Simulated assay, not measured.
Amino acid sequence: MKINHMMRLGVSVIALTAGAALAQESTDPIKLTLHDWTGQLITTELMGSILQKAGYNVEYVQADYLAQFAGLETGDLHVAMEMWETTGREAMDAATATGKVVNLGPTGMKAKEEWWYPSYMVEKCPGLPNWEALKEPACAEAFATAETAPKGRYLGGPVTWGGFDEERIEALDLPFEVIHAGTDAALFAELESAVQRKAPIMLWIYAPHWAPAKFEGDWVAFPEYTPECYSDPAWGINPDMAYDCGKPFGEIWKVGWAGLADKWPGAEKAIKAFTIDNAEMGAMITEVDLNGKTVEAVVADWMEKNEARWSGWIN
Rank of each mutant, 00 (worst) to 15 (best):
residue 110 K to M: 01
residue 106 P to F: 09
residue 87 T to L: 15
residue 102 V to T: 03
residue 96 T to A: 01
residue 78 H to F: 09
residue 110 K to H: 03
residue 84 W to S: 13
residue 124 K to Q: 14
residue 100 K to F: 12
residue 128 L to V: 05
residue 123 E to G: 02
residue 103 N to D: 13
residue 102 V to S: 07
residue 110 K to V: 03
residue 115 W to C: 04
residue 78 H to T: 14
residue 114 E to Q: 09
residue 83 M to E: 14
residue 104 L to W: 15
residue 101 V to P: 14
residue 129 P to R: 05
residue 104 L to K: 14
residue 110 K to C: 00
residue 89 R to M: 09
residue 113 E to S: 04
residue 126 P to G: 13
residue 111 A to S: 03
residue 121 M to H: 03
residue 127 G to W: 03
residue 105 G to T: 13
residue 111 A to N: 04
residue 125 C to R: 10
residue 91 A to Q: 04
residue 113 E to D: 03
residue 110 K to Y: 01
residue 81 M to I: 12
residue 83 M to S: 13
residue 114 E to D: 10
residue 98 T to Y: 10
residue 131 W to S: 00
residue 129 P to A: 11
residue 127 G to D: 02
residue 131 W to Q: 03
residue 104 L to T: 12
residue 119 S to N: 08
residue 122 V to H: 05
residue 107 T to G: 06
residue 120 Y to T: 11
residue 93 D to S: 15
residue 88 G to P: 14
residue 103 N to F: 05
residue 124 K to H: 15
residue 89 R to L: 10
residue 81 M to E: 14
residue 121 M to W: 02
residue 107 T to F: 01
residue 102 V to M: 05
residue 89 R to Y: 08
residue 93 D to C: 14
residue 130 N to S: 00
residue 89 R to T: 13
residue 116 W to F: 15
residue 103 N to G: 11
residue 98 T to R: 11
residue 78 H to I: 13
residue 129 P to I: 10
residue 131 W to C: 00
residue 100 K to H: 06
residue 117 Y to R: 11
residue 104 L to D: 15
residue 108 G to M: 11
residue 119 S to M: 10
residue 107 T to I: 06
residue 130 N to Y: 00
residue 115 W to T: 06
residue 92 M to T: 07
residue 118 P to F: 08
residue 128 L to H: 06
residue 120 Y to A: 08
residue 116 W to P: 11
residue 101 V to W: 00
residue 97 A to Q: 07
residue 86 T to E: 08
residue 112 K to E: 02
residue 128 L to T: 07
residue 81 M to K: 14
residue 91 A to S: 04
residue 78 H to V: 12
residue 94 A to H: 09
residue 123 E to F: 04
